[in-house]
């Protein structure tokens, strides 16, 4: 739930999603759900010559399970807030 919230705060920011098939897609994060499925607008593929079939694609929906990494804009991530929220969530997990 915590990571889901982080992504929600990053909507309308530019992110780069690296998939498990090594395809890297940069675009504007439009929405995210609890499975960390991601919708990107205005996308560009990192190595377009290797993936010519992606050139015409302007927006896409990415299934969460095929994501390897997401590169986030560091200036929009409050690391102190993240650490506090993680500790809080870890505590509620162990209490159960």
């Amino acid at each position: 739930m915590l990571i889901f919230s982080v992504f929600k705060t990053l909507t309308d920011q530019q992110v780069t999603v690296e998939l498990k098939n090594d395809l890297s897609i940069t675009g504007v994060l439009k929405s995210v759900d609890q499975f960390l499925n991601i919708r990107l607008d205005n996308i560009t593929v990192l190595d377009e010559t290797r993936h010519p079939h992606m050139m015409a694609v302007k927006n896409c929906f990415i299934r969460g399970s095929v994501v390897r990494y997401v590169q986030l804009p560091a200036e929009h991530v409050d690391t102190q807030l993240l650490e506090d929220a993680t500790r809080r969530e870890a505590q509620t997990q162990t209490k159960r």
């Binding site: 915590l2 990571i3 982080v6 498990k20 991530v77 690391t79 993240l82 993680t86 969530e89």
Partner: peptide, 22 residues
Amino acid sequence: RGDREMTGILHAYDGHMNLILS
């Protein structure tokens, strides 16, 4: 997985071991 390793400063994690590193 996939013969990858990394080091980074850990800022967040969850029960799935999703991580946020800088």
